[in-house]
Design a protein around this nucleic acid. Structure first.
Lengths: 233, 233
DNA sequence: GCATATTTGTCCGTATGTATA
DNA sequence: CTATACATACGGACAAATATG
């Protein structure tokens, strides 16, 4: 089975640890495994996930698999086509536009009015910026992409709202699917390293208003670049 | 069973319609029924939902029930306590604060910068305002509460983002649980009818900035009133 | 266009671990 | 502490929908 290989590599023991560490349910662990397979790009957008295949690969029952898949469908990582199965989501231009519509409301607002604008909060932003610079220095473009997500996650964390952070996590997970559809991931994030640094410096200087405006402009540019890439696809 | 009565009243036929109208899966329909039972207040916060009881009441299998319950847990309508079962969520003061934290970022931003600020979008807001006034005129305070939710839903719809609208729907569902914990629901929404009308008038006049500021103040007042009510509880 | 095989959606029975009276 | 109730997870079964030859 074409998808059994990467999946079975990544888990080895799901039911085995059940008796020792029952820190979560089996379905949750299955969902975690599949989610990581998707976000890491080993399961590409459009890939089919047959229930039976996952059962044998993961060594769990079909009921458990179905529960995990339902959860991931709710997270928009997978989509369910009735009586046909579940597939890795394939975000189109309309999805990109809507994700950025939501981000352009949430991120600047969190920067501008967030209640968690504290030294530690800003330090988290700085940490993400440095993580990106370090990854770029050694040419790890996958690491740059991850650091970029941490950057935007840290921006929303300035809101101080766990619910908004969770929503942002879903939007960023969708963004990973968008990037996995593109051929040139390496060069995409690099231009934004400098912008991240500048925005972070504004935050460290307490200039929230200008930082928020810069974030909005940043998101506009990123969206335009992505849609342009989609057009040539 | 103490919870079988209201549930069994509300459905009558779940599996029966399966052969005729298969518009959605059984799990989805079960989730819809339970969600409505909760939002309508027939299942109160803290109520327990035993899987077996739901099975017999709804005439579906445990697998289907578990799938539906998982979905509602993801929506924060229910909470799962490992190996103990699922319960209707009991939002505390911290939840109220966080829901309003998120709303105070999203709603004013949607009013201020939303891409769907159109005559039809504003008309939806006006429609919700009128719905509330009509319900209040005949003393239907439950209808006033529902109309109020439609009002805030319409505000976020001005963003033009389906994803933000869905997120808002989750937040409003949590708010219903908050209201169901309070004894005086009737009088709570009434003072806001006038504010809704004023905000709508500002939108109709194109004064988005002042409307957004008014929405922010509105939300602050509502949060304070709710937390005060929680303190005397 | 039709017959067949595959997969989903759903149900049932059962075993085991956990929490509570 | 025992016993009961329940959640968790498994495996098997079948009809219906879909895909395939």
């Amino acid at each position: 089975m074409h998808l059994a290989d990467p999946v079975s590599d990544a888990l080895a023991s799901l039911g085995r640890t059940r008796h020792f560490v029952n820190r979560s349910t089996t379905a949750e662990r299955v969902a975690d495994v599949v989610r990581e397979e998707v976000t890491e790009g080993r399961l590409r957008p459009g890939a089919r996930l047959p229930e039976q295949g996952l059962c044998t690969a993961l060594g769990v029952s079909r009921n458990t698999v179905r529960e995990a898949l339902s959860q991931l469908v709710a997270e928009r990582v997978l989509v369910r086509e009735p009586n046909r199965g579940v597939f890795v989501a394939v975000p189109g231009p309309a999805d990109v536009r809507d994700v950025y519509r939501a981000r352009k409301l949430i991120e600047p607002a969190a920067v501008r009015h967030g209640e968690a604008f504290t030294p530690t909060g800003v330090a988290m932003v700085r940490s993400a910026v440095n993580e990106g610079l370090a990854a770029a220095a050694v040419g790890e473009w996958g690491g740059v992409a991850t650091a970029n997500q941490h950057f935007h996650k840290a921006l929303v964390a300035l809101s101080g709202s766990p619910r908004l952070e969770q929503q942002m996590a879903l939007l960023l997970a969708e963004m990973r699917l968008v990037f996995h559809r593109m051929p040139e991931v390496r060069s995409f994030h690099e231009p934004y390293l400098g912008r991240n640094d500048r925005i972070c410096a504004m935050l460290e200087a307490g200039e929230r208003e200008t930082a928020a405006a810069e974030v909005a402009e940043y998101l506009d540019a990123a969206q335009a670049q992505l849609l342009a890439a989609y057009a040539q696809l």
